[in-house]
């Protein structure tokens, strides 16, 4: 039984770590703001969600388990709001610039993550 729980936790946490790594790679590699935000929110939602799911069976009690869930819910709410605000700001910048150079604003401006 405890072996099964351990395997479940390990699998969930590893899957969560995978989403964090993928999200970070996307944040660094993706060319524009909107796709970067898209990559980042996957790390927040799925990455942290899977890690919390993996830690739930290991929580010492119901209170600790609920606290873990609350942390995930708060991060999801905060992450979703930040993503919306950054997206809106990026859309405003896009409108402010009359003719963006043919969609491919990769290397020159995207150098700094």
């Amino acid at each position: 039984m405890s072996l099964l729980v351990g395997a479940f936790s390990t699998a969930c946490v590893l899957a969560g770590v995978f989403f964090f790594v993928a999200g970070t790679a996307g944040l660094i590699r993706f060319p524009d703001t909107l796709s970067r935000v898209h990559a980042l929110t996957k790390a927040d939602n799925l990455g942290l969600g899977l890690i919390v799911l993996g830690l739930l069976p290991l929580a010492p009690g119901l209170g600790a388990a609920l606290k873990l869930l609350l942390i995930w819910v708060l991060v999801v709410i905060g992450g979703a709001t930040a993503a919306q605000l950054i997206g809106a700001a990026a859309a405003r910048d896009e409108h402010a610039m009359p003719s963006p150079p043919s969609g491919g604003r990769g290397l020159g401006e995207g150098g700094v993550p």
């Binding site: 708060l74 709410i77 709001t81 919306q84 605000l85």
Partner: peptide
């Protein structure tokens, strides 16, 4: 309306 206003309304009670 908008995300900031929503967050400012639902987060403070928690």
């Amino acid at each position: 309306h908008g995300p900031l206003s929503l967050l400012a309304r639902i987060l403070p009670p928690v």
